[in-house]
Write a protein that binds this DNA or RNA. Structure first.
Lengths: 176, 176
DNA sequence: CGAGACTATATCTATGTTGATATAGTCCTC
DNA sequence: GAGGACTATATCAACATAGATATAGTCTCG
């Protein structure tokens, strides 16, 4: 269960509210991990029951009352266990983009080129957005660099597929 | 919902049973998409209700009776819509490895090196396994190449982190 | 002072996903 | 012919995730 650990990781910086956690995840961990409030709030409650965080209710600075969560010593221990990789299931990785393109045979060659170009644009957009996003610190910054490099690898791959496709479309399609 | 479409994609080759679908996913789409039987069987039933596949029950060749699913014309249309990217939510991507390493600050510098080396080994193993796995055809083969390139990008990233870490561990740690 | 943006928490429903377990026939090997 | 590996389907419970919606106070700007 990575979400709980990601939350612990973010709380190890400083205490935060559920709302802030969502914002930081979106800002600093995009394409690595994110979650909806509907997952964050119950998860914080669970972390609290496990004694990994504790809650302090503050009067509102702005808006409603603020439930500020703070990590405990046990929480830090748990975080370290996770980071050290001594827990953690294999966590089946999935890639919707690669999954879709794996079935590109389903389209006729003319359409393929179009899809590949669209995909390349989409990847470029994501890369630019990541690069221009608000900077993070320490290993969180490095992790974002890792994401960018992954996306660039995928973009190179898409591009090479596009070139192959273009070649096979221009040469007379010799029926095999 | 990608699983249904992946199943349609695999059925667009040839009719298969749920069992075979699981095997092919594991063999050809590892690290791209996979699912347990408990997800595949209900999903096939749903695809059937939607008219995207139909079912033929065969006597057992070996083992129990075989429920062989075959894609319909409507199923192929749906597959093409998906591949062309005209459906599809943004599908939040997640990366458990990057997520964990983003919080490497939680460990003391001595431990970091160890974790990074372990991670690099793990990535190398996965890459070798993918490369030596049974070959796929067409774009499915390309997709696997794409996976390998993503993993290699991550491995390069881990390696560069390791070098940084080594440098900062050997130089006298000037407290900032 | 009213509109709209922002901060916040909370909850519901539906769907996706994992892991475990039950059942059972067939084939191979010793 | 007994045991074990393999083929197959099926279902359960638990948990993860997405998306939508309700509520409400505060701040800013005109």
């Amino acid at each position: 269960m990575s979400l709980s650990h990601v939350l612990l990781g973010l709380l190890s910086d400083q205490p935060r509210t559920g709302y802030e956690l969502e914002r930081v995840m979106r800002a600093e961990l995009d394409s690595i991990w994110r979650a909806e409030y509907s997952q964050i709030y119950p998860d914080l409650a669970r972390l609290r029951r496990s004694g990994f965080v504790f809650l302090r209710v503050l009067g509102p600075r702005r808006g409603p009352r603020r439930n500020v969560y703070r990590i405990t010593a046990a929480g830090r221990r748990e975080l370290r266990r996770w980071v050290a990789g001594r827990l953690e299931a294999p966590a089946a990785e999935k890639d919707p983009t690669l999954a879709r393109l794996a079935f590109l045979d389903a389209l006729d060659p003319l359409e393929r080129m179009e899809i590949l170009l669209a995909e390349e644009r989409r990847l470029s957009d994501r890369i630019t957005r990541l690069r221009t996003a608000s900077p993070a610190r320490g290993f969180r910054r490095e992790a974002r660099r890792g994401t960018v490099e992954k996306l660039e690898a995928t973009r190179r791959w898409v591009r090479s597929l596009g070139q192959q496709t273009a070649r096979s479309a221009s040469t007379p399609p010799k029926k095999k």
